[in-house]
Design a protein around this nucleic acid. Structure first.
Lengths: 152, 152
DNA sequence: CACAACTCAGTTGTGCGCAACTTAGTTTGG
DNA sequence: CCAAACTAAGTTGCGCACAACTGAGTTGTG
């Protein structure tokens, strides 16, 4: 039990594998919309609340500006979002950039919802089990984040 | 309930976030060994069974040669592994490359084990809960992999 | 033997993630 | 008012992931 941990016994490895597997399941469906999974997450965040700033999006997705900025650049190039610097909604602060869905980006909402339904079904788990798994994972993430600095 | 799924409600997003969080927890500890998380996984696979071929490693880690090959290149450059083409252990097949721990790579085993222990503790979950979570995740991954082609 | 089908490892190109840094703009304290 | 501290977004560099492809080597079939 204190012996070398085997790959298959590790919860972390299971997490890493499961995460990639589910993104792989999304991939062919998102491909048809011209989206990657992280791009899809950005749109989900905007369907929920449009016009967020770059940092607010980063907080929602737990990603820093070094990841979000180029991601938004590609989403803008694809015509799904628009960036506005120093908009009145951010108090005219010229540092802030708000991100807004274009018509094309808003239109993806319906098809996007269908995809999440399909993935939920493909998991082979009941709705209740999925909720329970989600809550366990969020609890896990929270525990890690609070201990993050203590273990350095 | 059929409305637009919110980010925080999605099990997939929880998975994606948890996976990155746990790798982030490993990072500072692995940094000290000069390893990334995927590189650490390769070493774990080799501590378990040394001298595997590149494809066998890929199967163990669920990664293709396009990811594993450069990964091994970096591990070899760092002096932790050695690659041998057409070794007798693979029947002299000149296509096959077997990967072997160097002394330096083998020595990391003890410190690597300690790290997995620390991470397990930092999760804030009991041993039983971690096992249960791991099994749920593996079940989840398995379900997805079998349905993968059906949902295209 | 010949040669097509296949297998294995590796390369190329794109898009994340993340650390470290840069630049522009805002706030704070003297 | 002005300089220092801070904040927001973006850039750079590196290491994955993954699709698509390449080329060397092996196997199967006639």
């Amino acid at each position: 039990m204190d012996a070398t941990p085997r790959l298959g016994e590790q919860a972390c490895f299971a997490l890493y594998t499961a995460s990639r597997a589910v993104i792989g399941l999304y991939r062919p469906m998102l491909d048809r919309l011209g989206l990657t999974y992280p791009q899809f997450l950005v749109l989900m965040a905007l369907w929920e609340a449009d016009g967020r700033t770059v940092t607010a999006l980063g907080d929602a997705l737990q990603l820093d500006s070094g990841t979000v900025s180029p991601l938004l650049k590609r989403l803008e190039a694809a015509g799904f979002v628009e960036r506005r610097r120093g908009s009145t909604s951010s108090g005219g602060d010229e540092r802030r950039v708000t991100v807004h869905l274009t018509e094309s980006g808003a239109e993806l909402e319906r098809r996007g919802c269908e995809i999440t339904q399909v993935v939920g079904t493909a998991s082979g788990m009941s709705y209740e089990d999925l909720i329970a798994l989600r809550d366990k994972l969020n609890e896990f993430t929270e525990a890690i984040r609070t201990r993050e600095n203590a273990t350095d």
